Computed example of a mutant assay.
Amino acid sequence: MSGVATAGDSQGSAPSIQVNAPTYADLADLALAAPIAAHVRVARAQELKKEAAAGVRPGFGRVYIEAEIVSLIRSADGGLPSRIRYVVDLPRDPKGKVPKVRKGTEFLVFGLPVPGKADEIQLAAPDAQIPYAAARTDQVRTILRESTQPDAAPRITGIGRAFHVPGAIPGESETQIFLQTAANQPVSMTVLRRPGETPQWAVALSEIVDDAAAAPKRDSLLWYRLACTLPRALPGRSLADADAAGAAAIQNDYRFILEQLGPCPRTRTRA
């Protein structure tokens, strides 16, 4: 048992174990980063002590788990056997005891394959074992399905140039902000203002902004990529091509986009 890999083996400074219900962003953080995602049912659980629990942080205990796979949501090459094993560090209760993980308890786990050990996984993060819920599992499936589509929202790495063009009549304008992405895919955000109308904004995932461009729905992959990544203010280089009035208008439209996206709540601390 002492040979079972722990999340801390590859995570360095580990975050706190999650105690609150995970948000969409929490699930996306875990699902998109882990090559393995599975719904499992505990077959056996045992607290590890002494050498087998070396390196456990104060206030935590290490538990060895054998679990049956109820449903494999995402798999690394080669898949997984019907029964796997892993360890998880759990916070002790006020009396200093490690909580019992009962047989039959169901979890969602996000993990990494262990070379040479087909039946073993290493949790992708110390809190990558979360209580199973059908709706939660459906959300993970949706996140992963969206991420594999040809037109999937790419990972945002920065903000490029931004432009502002006044309209033909007072109060009319268009702002376009280009984003930088990990795979150099085109992404831009546009804000249209017309007198007496609510500002309209949209995101385009192609070079051309057409009628198909729209604002992202909350708790979608595109919303996550934007709301959970965009900085609170535009970098100065993005405004290099704008005059003072144009720069002020761009900043105002960018704030409008952030307000429309809303916050990106998380209940876990990422490594």
Rank of each mutant, 00 (worst) to 15 (best):
S71M: 07
A135S: 11
L144M: 07
R232A: 13
R136W: 06
A31C: 10
R85K: 06
D119P: 03
R83T: 12
A31P: 10
E174D: 11
R232H: 05
P216T: 00
G236F: 05
G104K: 08
V70A: 01
A25P: 03
E197T: 11
A14F: 03
W223P: 02
L80Y: 08
I143N: 02
E66D: 06
D119V: 10
I156S: 06
V70C: 00
G78F: 03
I143A: 03
A7K: 02
P35R: 15
D119C: 09
G236D: 14
S188K: 08
V87T: 12
V98R: 02
G78P: 03
R270Q: 12
V4G: 02
P15F: 00
D253H: 08
T142L: 08
R44F: 13
S188N: 12
V187E: 04
A128F: 00
D138N: 13
L48H: 06
A33K: 14
T23I: 06
T190S: 12
P263H: 12
P235Q: 07
A271I: 10
H39W: 12
T190G: 11
I121R: 03
E207Y: 06
G116S: 11
V165T: 15
A53N: 15
L112T: 13
D243E: 03
F163C: 11
R136I: 10
L221T: 00
M189T: 10
M1H: 04
I121G: 09
D127V: 03
H39E: 14
A245F: 04
K217P: 03
S173F: 09
V98N: 01
L239F: 05
K103E: 15
D119S: 12
I17A: 13
A67S: 02
